[in-house]
Design a protein around this nucleic acid. Structure first.
Lengths: 162, 162
DNA sequence: ACCTTCTTTTGACAGAGTCCAAAGAAGGCG
DNA sequence: CGCCTTCTTTGGACTCTGTCAAAAGAAGGT
């Protein structure tokens, strides 16, 4: 919703060679305000915000924005793909086993160590490392009083406890 | 198919409190012989091997074995969940963008660096780090002669190029 | 303004995974 | 050894997520 970006959605879209259309601008804004949202969650957000859009369009837009690098998708095991704006600066993710909440974390040790495996047999090209930490958030690690692992956090849509 | 394990499937199942049944033993063996297999691929392997099993049973078994720690599931973005036997020794994964092949890689820098994020705001409990490197395997990075990125590797079932 | 090209819509479709109730094995106990 | 309880498996219908293909509709350059 907030449109206080350094570069406007139109500009950003144009820069990557995509036409500036309402669905794309809207998706960009909503994802920026709701990082780690799933396609389904996004559809709901768009719906309640009055921006009706066909399912196919949503998937088209997500695919276009992801392919051109404006969005990035992650898929923690057991969850549907989640989207986030591809901001500069590498960061990784922290996922709660209990409620599925995803939190950004700056890359652990600068850049190098995380990006180079000890050995890469048969893989001449390596361009990206994706790190996911698993644990329990404050709520879910609480002494079973507030909202333990058995009660999924409302912020997480359709989460399957592994 | 090879049953030359240090501990027999029956024993292993019993140790985690699961009854030793044919479907479970079979799944354990097949996954051991085919690391990074998807549920669908597993169903096919089981079928051709003559071990018929309902889809529901397969999912039940996978869920049970995963929950008890005998199997581990990973889900590279864009792929269905893949299963592997939870062998001792941390290792991570190397995924080819072209054909989807997944390869095991020993943990990059021993244990510590990869397992501790710079900061974990709101996450008191952190138990596991999952690292996935993205790149191109030898075949897919070849000078467009043998089997480039446009021709998915036969070993990969239903792969969507991102 | 016009025309080409790119986007969106619509509706049908495919695949993966889940829910539920009933039938069937495992294994403990007498 | 045989019964009984409990855990597993089966089968079928169903939901959800994502895809395909063709036609209608906007963007934007000339």
């Amino acid at each position: 919703m907030t449109s206080t970006d350094r570069t406007s959605p139109e500009e950003v879209l144009h820069d990557v060679g995509l036409r500036s259309t309402a669905p794309r601008r809207t998706v960009l804004e909503v994802v920026a305000d709701h990082p780690h949202v799933t396609a389904a969650g996004l559809a709901e957000l768009l719906g309640t915000a009055g921006h009706r859009m066909s399912r196919q369009s949503l998937y088209n837009v997500l695919e276009d924005l992801t392919r051109t690098g404006l969005l990035r998708s992650i898929q923690p095991t057991g969850s549907a793909p989640r989207y986030e704006t591809a901001v500069a600066g590498d960061h990784h993710h922290l996922v709660c086993r209990g409620c599925g909440t995803v939190v950004d974390v700056p890359c652990a040790v600068g850049t190098s160590p995380c990006l180079t495996p000890a050995q890469a047999p048969g893989f001449p090209v390596l361009d990206r490392a994706e790190v996911t930490w698993w644990g329990l958030c404050t709520d879910c690690s609480a002494p079973s009083g507030t909202s333990p692992a058995t009660a999924p956090h409302p912020a997480s849509d359709s989460w399957r406890t592994p």
